[in-house]
């Protein structure tokens, strides 16, 4: 459990780096990194199918998508980046204190969350659930992918007749 906790903290650090870094390319790489850490965590939590899917789709496909988009723009100069970083340091100096305070307060209050799982005997295989039990979801997700692709083909044309 401790290892999982450490990995989750790493996940948050990776996502923070993704959000805070100034360069878009690094940000896209950060997203891929976040996704890889997420994959490791998913493996550790006994969900190999989801993990493999996450790795191939999120860190593979989506990073390629982002990097090819970012190659359209030119990067920011080095001085500008430094200036922005300094400005941010001075702007957000209180943030660690706030997080520490909130954590301490939450550990004192103890919100009564109650996660108890009812036992389930019937179906135990992810593949069976995905392909047979939740057929309508499967159809839905295929159609969603289709409509996403279709939407992209709509975007890359001139809409109005001249």
């Amino acid at each position: 459990m401790t290892v999982n906790l450490i990995i989750l903290v790493c996940l948050i650090l990776a996502s923070l780096w993704t959000v805070m870094t100034r360069s878009l390319l690094r940000s896209a790489l950060g997203l891929a990194l976040t996704s890889i850490v997420l994959t490791i965590l998913m493996f550790r939590l006994n969900s190999p199918l989801a993990a493999v899917f996450e790795l191939s789709v999120c860190s593979g496909l989506i990073s390629v998508l982002f990097i090819s988009t970012i190659s359209l723009t030119e990067p920011m100069s080095r001085q500008e980046t430094l200036k922005h970083m300094k400005a941010r340091m001075t702007r957000f100096w209180y943030l660690p204190l706030v997080i520490a305070g909130a954590g301490a307060a939450l550990s004192l209050i103890k919100i009564p969350l109650d996660f108890r799982f009812a036992p389930r005997e019937t179906i135990h295989d992810v593949r069976q659930i995905l392909w047979q039990v939740r057929q309508l979801d499967l159809i839905g997700q295929i159609i969603i992918l289709l409509s996403g692709v279709f939407g992209v083909t709509i975007l890359f044309r001139e809409g109005r007749k001249k």
Binding site: A50, I129, D137, L138
Partner: peptide, 8 residues
């Protein structure tokens, strides 16, 4: 997990 695959 099946839901997670769908959301991905």
């Amino acid at each position: 997990q099946a839901l997670c695959l769908t959301t991905i």
